[in-house]
Amino acid sequence: MEDKITIKEAYVAMYAYLERLYDMTGSNDLGGFLGSMSLLEDGTPAEPGVWNEWMRAVQQARNGQIDLTLELPDE
């Protein structure tokens, strides 16, 4: 497997992952979000703001601004 993928390939991978979650949960919220993420014939998302937010997230990840650390509350 290659170490690098394009931004569009990452978007498609995220969509596929969320679609699997939707299949498992049937969440209406997730289903609605997937609809807004779906691509139109010209390759743009059904909801234009989705791509802008995706690019913002990509930039934050590239800049090391995303903290994935799980923080459990003290008991």
Rank of each mutant, 00 (worst) to 15 (best):
Glu19Trp: 09
Met1Ser: 15
Ile5Arg: 11
Tyr15Phe: 15
Thr25Lys: 03
Leu40Tyr: 08
Trp54Ile: 10
Ser36Ile: 03
Val12Cys: 12
Thr6Ala: 10
Leu18Met: 14
Met1Val: 12
Leu39Ile: 08
Ser27Tyr: 10
Leu70Val: 13
Ser38Gln: 10
Pro48Ser: 00
Met14Leu: 10
Thr44Val: 05
Asn52Trp: 00
Met55Val: 13
Ile66Gln: 07
Arg56Cys: 00
Tyr17Gln: 14
Asp3Asn: 06
Glu2Ile: 01
Gly43Val: 02
Glu53Lys: 14
Tyr17His: 15
Pro48Val: 02
Thr25Trp: 03
Arg62Ile: 06
Leu68Met: 01
Pro73Tyr: 02
Glu75Gln: 09
Val58Gln: 00
Ile66Cys: 06
Gly26Ala: 03
Leu70Pro: 02
Ile5Lys: 15
Gln65Met: 11
Thr6Phe: 13
Gly43Phe: 05
Gly26Asp: 00
Ala10Asn: 15
Leu68His: 02
Gln60Phe: 12
Lys8Trp: 01
Leu39Met: 07
Met1Arg: 15
Thr69Glu: 14
Glu75Asp: 12
Arg56Leu: 01
Gly32Gln: 13
Glu53Val: 05
Ala10Tyr: 15
Gly64Tyr: 05
Met14Ser: 04
Glu41Trp: 06
Val12Thr: 12
Tyr11His: 06
Asn28Gln: 14
Phe33Ala: 15
Leu68Gly: 05
Gly35Thr: 14
Phe33Gly: 11
Asp74Glu: 11
Glu47Phe: 11
Met14Lys: 07
Arg56Tyr: 01
Trp54Thr: 02
Glu2Val: 05
Glu47Asp: 15
Leu68Gln: 05
Leu30Cys: 07
Asp29Trp: 14
Ser27Val: 13
Asp67Arg: 01
Asp3Gln: 14
Asp29Glu: 14
Val12Ile: 14
Asp29His: 13
Met55Tyr: 08
Ala10Val: 04
Leu21Pro: 00
Asp42His: 01
Arg56Asp: 00
Asn28Gly: 11
Tyr15Ala: 04
Gly35Ala: 15
Leu39Asn: 10
Lys4Val: 13
Leu72His: 07
Ile66Tyr: 02
Pro73Asn: 10
Ala10Gln: 13
Thr69Tyr: 04
Asp23Val: 03
